[in-house]
């Protein structure tokens, strides 16, 4: 219907969009350039867009920083275990809840809906985690968040659209719910399960509030919290000394450029999965918007 050739509106809005895209991407380019710049060069010619005097020393230093390695492993661990557990617990619940024949389905529905609107608040939750002995315990990253009513309803709605005839014929063949759930429904639900998996992966990787509240042991802290600590440090002299001693090279880096290197390393996993995840994210959000 609309004219296909460029008009003034498209040109003006296009310029606004390009500025917006630049403003969105610029902080990342800046951080990356800063993290690979030679500090001495950078002090003379300030880094604003492109790196000055290329060096990888900041990234080499990360491999000598036990905190960062430790944090990376904890974050990877909680992301993998936490996501697997979440998809299993929430997916199985959604499967059962999608069955009309489930006795007490109505009551369970109300039971799962109420927490979507009401919560006890931070302090009662804090005390609960304390009483369950989950302080300084890896399980605090994966157990309390192993289920979400919101995602359960999202998967349930999807499963309800699977034709019942598939289940009936499987039942005639003598299959039980366990076999039907895993062999018939799970493969059919891959689009919605992929969406949920990606969302939870990102949530897990980005989580730091739970660690801030419940984990004081440094070797149990996830990368995000380690990054937060490093960002607030005014100096990293000890690390620079260790680097100078073990490599015999006087480092050409400072605290500020090192901070940006750790920040980039923390961001990279998200940037890598983003292109794959994007279409699922948008689709998942739209399903949620239409059906909730």
């Amino acid at each position: 219907m609309r004219k296909s050739k460029l008009n003034l509106f498209d040109i003006l809005v296009g310029i606004v969009f390009l500025i917006l895209c630049f403003l969105t991407v610029y902080p990342f380019i800046y951080a990356l350039s800063f993290s690979i710049s030679d500090t001495i060069m950078a002090a003379q010619h300030s880094v604003v867009f492109l790196p000055r005097g290329l060096t990888w020393q900041n990234y080499e230093m990360i491999f000598k920083d036990d905190r960062v390695i430790q944090g990376f492993l904890i974050s990877a661990g909680r992301t993998i275990i936490g996501t697997a557990l979440f998809v299993l617990v929430t997916g199985l619940c959604a499967y059962a809840m999608s069955k009309q024949r489930l006795k007490g389905r109505r009551m369970l529905f109300i039971f799962f809906v109420i927490p979507l609107y009401l919560s006890g608040g931070l302090l009662p939750y804090y005390v609960l985690i304390h009483d369950l002995n989950l302080f300084n315990n890896f399980l605090v990253y994966v157990i309390p968040g192993c289920f979400s009513g919101f995602y359960m309803f999202l998967i349930k709605v999807y499963l309800e659209n699977v034709p019942e005839s598939m289940e009936e014929s499987a039942m005639l063949d003598g299959a039980n719910d366990l076999q039907i759930a895993f062999r018939i429904y799970a493969p059919l639900a891959i689009p919605v399960l992929a969406t949920v998996t990606l969302f939870i992966c990102v949530t897990q990787w980005n989580s730091w509030f739970d660690a801030l509240l419940f984990v004081t042991k440094p070797d149990l802290q996830p990368l995000q919290l380690i990054l937060q600590v490093i960002l607030r440090e005014t100096q990293i002299d000890n690390l620079l000394q260790v680097y100078a001693m073990t490599t015999g090279v006087k480092p050409k880096v400072n605290a500020e450029s090192y901070k940006m290197a750790v920040l980039i390393v923390t961001t990279l996993p998200i940037v890598f999965i983003y292109p794959f995840a994007q279409k699922y994210f948008v689709k998942g959000t739209m399903i949620g918007a239409v059906k909730m």
Binding site: Y30, W208, Q224, K259, L263, T266, T267, I270, Y274
Partner: peptide, 13 residues
């Protein structure tokens, strides 16, 4: 999809 910790690090820089 970027955590607030990272946004804060970018802003402080």
């Amino acid at each position: 999809f970027i955590s607030w910790v990272i946004v804060s690090g970018l802003l402080y820089r």
